[in-house]
């Protein structure tokens, strides 16, 4: 939405924006209360979400947070929280380029550099299910596009 607004402010310079150019804004405003509600729920439950995803991942793969003999679960938790916060903000603003350009393209290279692709892919594969436990179906639908971008890039 922020990117679209910025683009619109450039394209509509010197004239009024047309109804079709403003359609995204109407659509956004209609969904804004649900976006805000979802954002606040994720904020309030972030530690619980972290605990749940950690339990789910460990149940799937007991070694998910082990690098050899080193336990890296705290580092993974920190990174997951950062990514979830960006994801929630992208949903709030309805702006996937904020998420992709501001975090994921960089994070993808770091994930590859430290060879964390497996844990990362597993995390973002399982995250939608965890978030559905905390959100209404309508709220969950709003955050799915951002989670799909995470899945596509952090693997």
């Amino acid at each position: 939405m922020l990117t679209q607004l910025k683009q619109l402010s450039i394209e509509a310079e010197g004239r009024f924006a047309t109804a079709s150019e403003l359609a995204f804004l109407t659509e956004y405003l209609a969904s804004a209360p649900k976006r805000l509600s979802a954002y606040e729920k994720i904020h309030a439950a972030q530690e619980q979400i972290m605990d749940e995803i950690e339990a789910d991942l460990t149940a799937i793969d007991a070694q998910a947070f082990m690098k050899g003999s080193r336990d890296v679960s705290e580092i993974c938790r920190r990174d997951r929280k950062d990514t979830l916060r960006y994801t929630a903000a992208a949903m709030l603003f309805n702006d996937l380029s904020y998420l992709r350009d501001g975090l994921l393209l960089w994070q993808r290279t770091i994930v590859h550099a430290v060879q964390d692709q497996k844990a990362s892919a597993l995390t973002w594969r399982e995250m939608p299910e965890v978030l559905r436990r905390h959100l209404t179906p309508e709220e969950a639908d709003l955050i799915m596009p951002a989670l799909q971008v995470n899945q596509a890039l952090l693997n």
Partner: peptide
């Protein structure tokens, strides 16, 4: 540090 991490940091 891990060489691959440093290299990514350099090129960004």
């Amino acid at each position: 540090c891990r060489p691959t991490l440093a290299l990514e940091a350099w090129w960004w």
